[in-house]
Design a protein around this nucleic acid. Structure first.
Lengths: 331, 331
DNA sequence: ACGGCGGATGTCAACGTTGACATATGTCAA
DNA sequence: TTGACATATGTCAACGTTGACATCCGCCGT
């Protein structure tokens, strides 16, 4: 900037005024400054600006478990678009679903003085350490799963309601023994909520809950195994509800391997090729882009001074009927 | 930092020394500083540090077309891991495949004084404007597609070789009429290369190139339509090669709708559920994580002072045999 | 003619940190 | 005893930018 100023024969301050459209500047000076800017290829140093002005970086930090996962990727995309429209930049990090990486990323973001923090908490995380930042007024929003040990904004899918709808859909097609294939229990919030939805639907239909119809596996292959175990029961389920996309894929693979095209299946969370499967997969679809956008709006409102108490926002799910969930129960 | 210094009764400089393990500090002083840091919950301001030290931000900027796309998401993940291991932070932006957004994101990153730039160029992009930065020594690496109008490092899939292998695989199973379903021509580098690979394979096998066997569509539905047109030819192909994952999905949908389980298919780029399809989809798989990691390594080498000339690195593809590509040609 | 006022620009300091250099105190060998 | 040297800490300025305030000039109304 000093170089530009020297080139034109004015002070840095005047250049600053031109660039920020700030104080009054003579038209001719403005033009000469602009030209020098072009000529020298000058670009203002945002770091210095942020430091001088706010002591807050015009960026927001986002921690997600896995960028390659289209769900989280889409969430991040939703956040980025909304946030960029306000001139903010997105900084992201992969926590790989571990509490250590999550903490270390958060620490880095805080050290960078991000304007806000958005976190998809990893399973084992604990967020007490963020209390100080919260009271200091830093907007913090949790995505997909709520915070642990901290009262803060969160934006999550309507897991329980969605799961309930999916299972009710199976029951409506005559199934009375519906298996649940999901993640390992206790750990995840989403798994708990969806499991509750499963039980809600059974209860609403007056069906008994049978522990033996619940099997878990934390990756696709394990979920396939879980599905196999369910199919091998003496009194096997005639329909399955898969609690997440890996479980869905596992169930699809298992049913395909076992050549059991008669078992109905509804999965939670949509899959790209769902309609190409045989039968096409019926799912309870989430809306990750909307989740990201909603969270971003919440953050922006907070940045604009919204000081209302922390709230949990539910993002609705949508039952996408394609075929696998409408297979009738055998008579 | 000043606060911590005051609390302990030393200068900011001493605190700085403790925190950076820099000059010699008395053990007792160190402990008192550390305690004050904990007590006050002090966190060093990375912005200020970056500004003072380097005038370069300890971050690298990454522009990708679409974060929700698992391919680019995984690339970004690969970059992030590699880069974080070196204490650098990842800043990302969605270009939505438009040249304007791409440019504006790049400008923002430059203004932030990122240490390096990584770009997945959008179709219509032109990168002449980055020449100045290149000669100024800023590491710039292009991913998945090379730069336009600029000599710079790039890391791309072995598109031509991979496509050639995929098509040769079909030919090896007796097919003599192999259709190509891909993106709209000229635009994309990847499309051009893969198409070349397709022609290479035909030529190597002494098969004629038949223009009527090439159809395009830029989204899944259009690709399905393109497939339908190929199947409706008087002398239709007995095998198809799909030039990207959307084309693959379109082809799968079309074959499924037309109940044509006899048409062989090989797709470029893997799909999550590929093995659950009927028949399971044979693909030429790319390795996005490796692409990201490779690009990151290149950037780090450049940051370490590697001044060798710009190079194009090919990331090998892998033929994943699952069934759809091994259907024999009808006699 | 003069006070006042608004436009155009300059001066200075400060944001939080750290490099370069200076200072103070203690230790040891000649 | 003294100088050389290491250890521990302080002082100052600077990174690039902009807020607060000052200055200079010309024009206006009375």
């Amino acid at each position: 900037m000093t170089d530009v100023a020297r080139e034109v024969g004015v002070t840095a301050k005047t250049v600053s005024r031109v660039l920020n459209g700030d104080g009054p500047v003579a038209v001719e000076t403005r033009e000469r400054v602009m030209e020098a800017v072009r000529k020298l290829g000058y670009q203002p140093n945002l770091m210095a600006r942020n430091m001088r002005v706010g002591a807050r970086d015009a960026a927001i930090g986002l921690v997600i478990p896995e960028m390659g996962n289209p769900f989280f990727g889409t969430v991040a995309g939703g956040v980025e678009s909304a946030v960029r429209a306000r001139g903010l930049t997105l900084i992201v990090g992969n926590s790989s679903e571990t509490a250590e990486l999550e903490q270390s990323l958060i620490a880095t973001f805080l050290a960078r003085r991000v304007s806000a923090l958005m976190v998809v908490p990893s399973a084992a995380g604990d967020h007490r350490h963020l209390r100080g930042e919260r009271v200091a007024g830093l907007p913090i929003v949790f995505l997909d799963r709520p915070a642990v040990g901290l009262t803060a904004d969160s934006v999550v899918s309507a897991n329980r309601e969605g799961a309930r709808e999916g299972v009710a859909h199976l029951i409506a097609h005559g199934h009375r023994r519906v298996g649940f294939v999901g993640d390992v229990p206790a750990a995840l919030y989403t798994r708990r909520e969806r499991f509750q939805g499963y039980r809600d639907a059974l209860e609403a239909a007056g069906l008994p809950f049978d522990r033996s119809l619940v099997e878990t596996g934390h990756d696709q292959e394990a979920a396939a195994g879980a599905t196999m175990r369910l199919l091998a029961l003496d009194d096997p389920p005639t329909a399955l509800f898969a609690g997440n996309n890996l479980a869905s894929m596992g169930a699809v693979v298992a049913l395909s391997r076992a050549r059991r095209k008669d078992v109905a299946l509804v999965g939670f969370d949509d899959l790209p090729l769902a309609e190409c499967l045989d039968p096409p997969l019926t799912v309870v679809a989430q809306d990750p882009a909307r989740m990201g956008a909603t969270a971003a709006e919440l953050v922006l409102a907070r940045l604009d001074g919204d000081r209302s108490r922390a709230r949990r926002t539910l993002v609705p799910t949508r039952l996408v009927v394609r075929g696998s969930g409408e297979l009738p129960a055998p008579r």
